[in-house]
């Protein structure tokens, strides 16, 4: 078999991902009742999440200057991007466990990219619950927000969601790479994944400037929805950045994924040289 070329690698990775994810879907179907319950639970968990926001708005009219409809808009965008990523590669935080119990080795002796095998690990359709809830909230907000729908704003919507997935993917992969070094530290990843999506569900005006700067320039989560969404809503971004940055998310996503890919390779290399 010819050594993988760059494109061949990607195709091989996607093929592996499909194969392994398919096996997991069939595995979960062995426990249908539990699947139904966890799918619903997944939906309900995120629903309660939003219920808390609605409860807040039962007492106030605006949060950080944003009315409920606009907070829901931010919430929906963050939840859909995160939900799709979580559905796709949400089990990457189990890598530390695989390293600890040695089952990562069984993936390394197969003729398939390890990243794809780990990404598809424990693929669970129940995570559709989160995406569904996010989409519902986003849909509801769109009926309420007052947006001047120009062509570029309309185009920015799908660009935003896809780029958001890219950025969150990078966070998941980098987090998994970190677990090669610190196997017990899977919770750190939650701070950036679940913490990240929670942060983005609220308006940037709520948070301290330093925190907003941090998630704009250091860990660029702000490009998932804050920057582009404030543009769509016609609101100023708290840091007073140029408007065209609303179109930066695709570039940011590509950059983040490249960095995460490097981190992954470094992590895997260190695993293969230390075996710990």
């Amino acid at each position: 078999m010819a050594p993988w070329t760059r494109r061949g690698r990607l195709a091989e990775g996607l093929r592996t991902y499909r194969l392994v994810a398919g096996m997991w879907v069939r595995s979960t179907m062995a426990y249908r009742a539990s699947f139904a319950m966890t799918a619903f639970g997944n939906f309900a968990a995120t629903f309660l999440d939003f219920a808390a926001i609605m409860l807040m708005f039962s007492r106030v009219d605006a949060l950080g200057g944003y009315p409920l409809s606009e907070v829901a808009f931010l919430y929906g965008l963050s939840a859909v991007s995160f939900g799709l990523t979580d559905l796709g590669i949400g089990s990457m935080d189990r890598l530390g466990r695989r390293v600890r119990d040695g089952t990562l080795d069984t993936l390394l002796v197969r003729p398939a990219p390890v990243l794809a095998q780990v990404a598809a690990d424990r693929f669970a359709l129940r995570r559709l619950g989160r995406v569904t809830q996010g989409a519902l909230v986003l849909g509801w907000s769109l009926t309420r927000v007052d947006i001047d729908w120009t062509a570029d704003r309309l185009l920015l919507m799908p660009v935003m969601v896809v780029s958001g997935c890219g950025i969150f993917c990078a966070v998941f992969v980098a987090g998994a790479a970190f677990q090669f070094v610190a196997q017990d530290a899977s919770e750190v990843q939650n701070a950036f994944t679940y913490g990240g999506t929670t942060l983005l569900q609220y308006p940037p005006t709520v948070f301290a400037k330093e925190l907003v700067r941090g998630v704009t320039f250091v860990l660029p989560l702000a490009f998932v929805n804050w920057l582009p969404a404030t543009y769509v809503l016609g609101r100023p971004y708290p840091l007073g950045l140029p408007r065209w940055l609303a179109w930066a998310p695709p570039l940011v996503a590509v950059g983040c994924c490249a960095l995460a890919g490097l981190a992954w390779r470094a992590g895997l290399r260190s695993y293969r040289s230390t075996g710990s």
Binding site: P3, R26, S27, Y31, G102, V109, R110, P113
Partner: peptide
């Protein structure tokens, strides 16, 4: 050339099954 080698070798880890548990 880990992946190329994988086609030429078979590995059985006695205490870790590679079979799919629920299938």
């Amino acid at each position: 050339e880990r992946a190329r080698l994988a086609h030429r070798i078979g590995v059985v880890f006695g205490q870790r099954t590679t079979l799919w548990w629920d299938l």
